[in-house]
């Protein structure tokens, strides 16, 4: 059985099976870039997104100037195409990671490209919380921090999980461009071997692995949403 499978792989996927380690490495790199940048961008995005709600004109700590600045910054960075962003943030990448090439260097543009997108999604998810519930919390004597952590972020959990899945999936897409700065990953493998060297089976397998990653992310999110929705 195992022999038969190995033989079939050799015939159908000659270029993948000749160097199976490459596919594994690329998958690990993609998962690494996705996970680490999701973690960092997640924290920053939740802070920024919640801040946008809190300092909104109708928020619990209205601050029109701060809102205007944050709002415009988010829009600005969301407008920059990711490929250009990679080049644009090169100097910052060097300061933060000491280099501008490699998987870790790719994290900087990934985070900067994701935070504004995620923050906007978080803002919308948090805005979904019934204003009446916020009013009730204020009437009970809750302070701003209490309202943020015990009401906003808690009541918005289903929405937050949903937009997080959306963001992680879009992040998996972004990591495929990390090859530009030598970040590796499945996108890089699909282009450098599958496309440039006419090894179509590599491209197909990379696509399949990415599809699996996307479906797994979505399935986990759906499961979690179900758990926290009452």
């Amino acid at each position: 059985m195992i022999d038969w499978l190995t033989n079939a792989a050799h015939v159908l996927l000659p270029n993948v099976s000749s160097r199976p380690g490459d596919l594994w490495d690329a998958t690990v790199e993609t998962c690494y870039m996705t996970a680490v940048s999701a973690l960092i961008a997640g924290v920053l995005g939740i802070i920024l997104g919640t801040l946008l709600v809190v300092v909104d004109r109708r928020g619990i700590l209205p601050h029109p100037v701060l809102y205007w600045v944050l709002d415009k910054l988010v829009n600005l960075f969301r407008s920059i195409p990711f490929v250009i962003l990679i080049a644009l943030v090169g100097p910052l990448t060097r300061i933060l990671t000491g280099t501008t090439i490699g998987t870790t260097a790719a994290l900087v543009p990934l985070v900067i490209g994701t935070v504004p997108f995620y923050a906007r999604q978080i803002q919308n998810a948090v805005l979904e919380v019934d204003p009446g519930v916020i009013e009730a919390a204020q009437a009970m004597g809750s302070g701003p921090m209490e309202i943020i952590f015990r009401v906003y972020l808690r009541e918005a959990r289903p929405g937050i999980i949903r937009v997080s899945a959306l963001t992680i999936i879009s992040l998996i897409g972004l990591t495929t461009m990390a090859g530009i700065v030598g970040g590796g990953g499945l996108g890089d493998l699909a282009i450098s071997r599958g496309y440039n060297r006419f090894q179509t089976d590599v491209t197909i397998v990379c696509t399949l692995v990415i599809l699996v990653l996307v479906y797994v992310s979505q399935a986990i999110a759906d499961f979690l949403v179900k758990r926290v929705t009452h």
């Binding site: 009446g132 009437a139 009970m140 302070g143 808690r154």
Partner: peptide
């Protein structure tokens, strides 16, 4: 603001749409 929060704890309030925490 801090004194106000303490004072509000002495004043209960209920609403037309109940405003319970759904989660």
């Amino acid at each position: 603001p801090t004194q106000l929060r303490t004072a509000r704890k002495r004043i209960g309030m209920i609403f037309q749409h109940f405003n319970l925490l759904g989660s």
